[in-house]
Design a protein around this nucleic acid. Structure first.
Lengths: 227, 227
DNA sequence: CGCGGCTTTCCATCGAATGGAAATCCGCCC
DNA sequence: GGGCGGATTTCCATTCGATGGAAAGCCGCG
């Protein structure tokens, strides 16, 4: 029986209603395709009651959908909205050429753009001669030790190089961690037009990359924000 | 100089703050990749001031981004969120086989799932021997006059057939518009496992389709809502 | 210079968001 | 069965943030 029902005790920290809804969406990421209500509430830092209401609204809008087992996952409308973003257009135009590359080489082909301080994988087509890597569209690759990353870095504004050099993380024994060495590699890339990484990111995985330029400067569109 | 500033005149119809933000997102669709603030406000049915505030929040969350020319478009975060949806997983597993099909036939290959009363295109790979169709991922195809549509319809619950038969729209002179004829075609598909459409949807475009079944019933996950 | 359209800022009002608590529900173990 | 822990759902008094009209700013154009 309901008896007291104290006032909500002023816990609203000042976040807008919209930002709360967005923090619910942010609770989903590559490692969390499906979440229960209480997981969402914990990950988003919201009381369950609030999360419950927001999630219900997002479901009604089909941005989320509720599975029979009660868990929530990203819904169809979100998928279709995401398809309106710039990477999709790039992907559509590049896809036939990526297919040609796979056909010609038999190797896995990646297309990536510069996004902040990492390379954002826009598309990947697996080749028959190589075991497919784990980098699907939406994934990120470091700039200093992957072929695509180096090419993007070689043609990026110099400020970015400084930022990247501040954190030359070592992934394998072959990772380039010396700034000078990296600079020389980038210079070679600018002259030859070809970037390479031999097991610098993952042992046993080597790759080549080349820049693709067009009328629209894709990288400029995406380099605005760090993360 | 500010003098009066009447009270807001109570125009809030009762929609929640979140639903307004979502209606802003809904203003974007396949024909509207980029919108100005006033376009958004008109399409979403919101006052400019409200739209302005919501859009600013969505930009801060990187769900939208503002282009240098002032127009807004769907941003990187939305793209990555959309990639978490179920169709992406399906796409990832199917992609190598689609590549094989393109390689073996030279024709364009589509992968589609049943979603409401139409087929939702999950992936498309263009073949070298055919001019690519305009149906990109996220697009929709009618069920009664496309090869994929007929196959999905043939294996769908009978209620759906009734709904579809109520609107057998004619796209070309070759479109099947007779319910009995359609039923017979579906019966053939169930027996042979192969669906076909000869210029029934677009003149000059013919195609074949076959069902793909798995442990997970993809169609059941997506058939909940009409639209 | 004034007009029309788009964008941005301001702020008084009040309705809608909020979250603690209670009530369910469910699986599990003793 | 009965009790326990956790997740989910419902309820509602409080109050704070959302709201939108209006005004001001900003172009580009004739």
């Amino acid at each position: 029986m309901r008896s007291a029902n104290r006032p909500p005790a002023r816990t609203a920290p000042g976040r807008s209603a919209t930002s709360r809804a967005l923090s619910v969406l942010d609770a989903f990421d590559a490692g969390h395709h499906a979440l229960t209500l209480s997981q969402i509430s914990r990950r988003a830092g919201l009381p369950v009651a609030t999360a419950h209401r927001l999630v219900a609204e997002l479901c009604a809008a089909r941005l989320l959908l509720r599975r029979p087992d009660g868990a929530y996952e990203v819904g169809a409308r979100m998928w279709r909205l995401g398809l309106l973003a710039a990477p999709t257009l790039l992907r559509e135009t590049a896809l036939p050429h990526l297919q040609d590359l796979v056909l010609a080489t038999g190797h896995t082909v990646h297309l990536a753009v510069l996004d902040g301080t990492s390379a954002l994988v826009v598309e990947r087509l697996a080749g028959s001669r190589t075991q497919p890597t784990r980098h699907s569209p939406g994934g990120r690759l470091p700039l200093h030790c992957t072929a695509v990353g180096k090419v993007l870095l070689a043609h990026a504004p110099p400020e970015l190089l400084a930022t990247v050099e501040a954190d030359l993380r070592r992934y394998t024994p072959w990772t380039t961690t010396d700034p000078d060495r990296l600079r020389r590699q980038l210079e070679v890339i600018r002259r030859s037009g070809l970037g390479r990484s031999a097991q610098e990111h993952r042992p046993g995985v080597s790759s080549l990359a080349m820049p693709v330029r067009g009328r629209r400067a894709w990288s400029r569109r995406w380099a605005s924000w760090p993360r």
